[in-house]
Nucleic acid binder design. Structure first.
Lengths: 146, 146
DNA sequence: TTACACTAAATTGTATTCAATTAAAAATTT
DNA sequence: AAATTTTTAATTGAATACAATTTAGTGTAA
């Protein structure tokens, strides 16, 4: 079990358990975690193309297309074919989709307060480390194709 | 976007990208990442019950039962009903399953060498941080049920 | 001992992930 | 302009995750 194997298991398990905790806050809104992530991207920057959402979350159309159709069926998002470039599809928040933000945020802030109480643990420091790691992993992934 | 929201996205994304890199080493053996994880648990301690594998990976029978059946179909594992307690099922490595370890390990060590080259990054330190975080997250998850 | 609770695995149904392929539109090259 | 390449989503198929339920076996208490 080399350090990379340990790291992958730690990331995988921490990710799943934390998402389970977050899911507890999302269920009341009928959202799954990936659905929430897409909404969070749009709350920050609305009207993005499928492509652009994918870049921000490292997800492809195989995941995003059905997910966006689901969000559209739930009336949180409207999908629209690009006028200039008909290959593209943009996702725009509906009014209910926009309204959701403050409610979801309030619920997630309660969980954050609990996580912040973990002793001897700097969540900001960990976030910085992980942001740096991600850039390196993406670089390795792309260089592998050579 | 509070620190916990950032953390979940970082864990989720880093986890997926690192697993994609590892998958590149596993495909030649016909293994998926969760299948490899179960084998890795058994390489360390053979003959565990479904339950016990689940504790080590934080996975339940809904995930493990079909996965173990797949590993059995690939002849890497043999599942056996407990004699004393017929509710239990134990997973034992077959000879091909055991033989796989050194080959998979060799391939994963190559990836580890690349990851180790990332500058200004202590993978061991990160692993320790994540191990500690996981224990805290599990405690929060279990206390939530109160 | 018989009813009741508990435990372990399996099953069911929904929702991702992701590699690989397809289809259509746009950009580029010849 | 016609052919080729590239780009963008969508589709397809296999394999998880996981909550919720079911089934069967075990333990316990009246």
């Amino acid at each position: 079990m080399n350090p990379t194997q340990s790291l992958s298991l730690q990331l995988y398990t921490n990710s799943r358990i934390l998402i389970q905790l977050i899911q507890g806050s999302l269920t009341e809104f009928g959202l799954t975690y990936p659905q929430y992530l897409v909404l969070a991207v749009l709350w920050k920057e609305d009207g993005l193309r499928v492509n652009e959402i994918g870049q921000r979350l490292e997800l492809d159309s195989g995941t995003l297309t059905p997910l966006l159709k689901k969000l559209e069926a739930m009336n949180f998002v409207k999908r629209q074919r690009g006028e200039a470039d008909e290959r593209t599809v943009t996702a725009e928040l509906t009014y209910p989709g926009k309204s959701l933000q403050s409610k979801v945020q309030e619920s997630l802030n309660k969980l954050d307060a609990i996580i912040q109480e973990i002793p001897d643990f700097s969540i900001d420091s960990l976030n910085q480390t992980l942001a740096g790691l991600l850039e390196n992993l993406k670089a390795i992934k792309n260089s592998d194709h050579a």
